[in-house]
Amino acid sequence: MADEVIGTKEVNFQDREVPDETVGEVFVNNPRMTARNVSVYYAEKLAVDDVTLDVGSSEVIAFVGPSGCGKSTLLRCFNRMNDTIDICRMEGKINIDGDDINDPKIDVVSLRARVGMVFQKPNPFPKSIFDNIAYGPRIHGLARDSVELDEIVERSLERAGLWSEVKDRLDQPGTSLSGGQQQRLCIARAIAVGPEVILMDEPCSALDPIATAKVEELISELREQYSIVIVTHSMQQAARVSDRTAYFHLGKLVEVGETKQIFTRPVHRLTEDYITGRFG
């Protein structure tokens, strides 16, 4: 999807100032989410430093970089998960489909319904598989009746490639599944709410290689319908699943570009050092 990345001309945002540090094309022509000059502080500590970046519609963008580079923190800004941390403060602007997500008029609840999230460690609720998936549709009032709810659960599990594995034991606890199945359950749970964007925070770091492969396969299938932002430690994973890659270093967005380009012809010195394994 490299052809979606275009120049600065056709853009409808006024502030197109790219911080000096960033190399590469941060803008896309049909952005779903846009971050402008985003900085995040934990108490006094600067965790994300003046990042400007677009997330395109129906693309997978990977955030990579060494530990503590702020990639997860930025990810959590996209659905305001950082609100749950008292000392965390954000500056700058993030929009979804042109709406400011920090606008007081936007309910954080509906934002999170639009921007789903999958966490590092599989975290199914201690409820049945069915109830895990049905939780989101129930709280948001998405299903008008139980038939519709059943259908949402079935479709979500199908979409996550889990249906055939669990269809006979929907009433068993979600925690009884294997780690990889649990993570796909969490993805299905996010899908069930009908999001536009899915944020994934190192979704495979707790999984074995086979389970990881299955989740990666799922991500590739989901890219058609959703924008996916994935934070990963594994360079190979970024190379395998993402369309674009953004490299972060010490809270700054150093370089962003087509995944192929980043991995074959990195421009910035830091990016090159990192992907060639000289540090990190």
Binding site: V109, H140, L142, A192, V193, E224, Q225
Partner: peptide, 20 residues
């Protein structure tokens, strides 16, 4: 949405807004 049989984001957003 055509292929998955799931609610489209648009429809979902409408229903979420209704519940708020």
């Amino acid at each position: 949405s055509t292929d998955s049989g799931l609610l489209s984001p648009q429809e979902a957003a409408v229903r979420v807004a209704a519940s708020l």
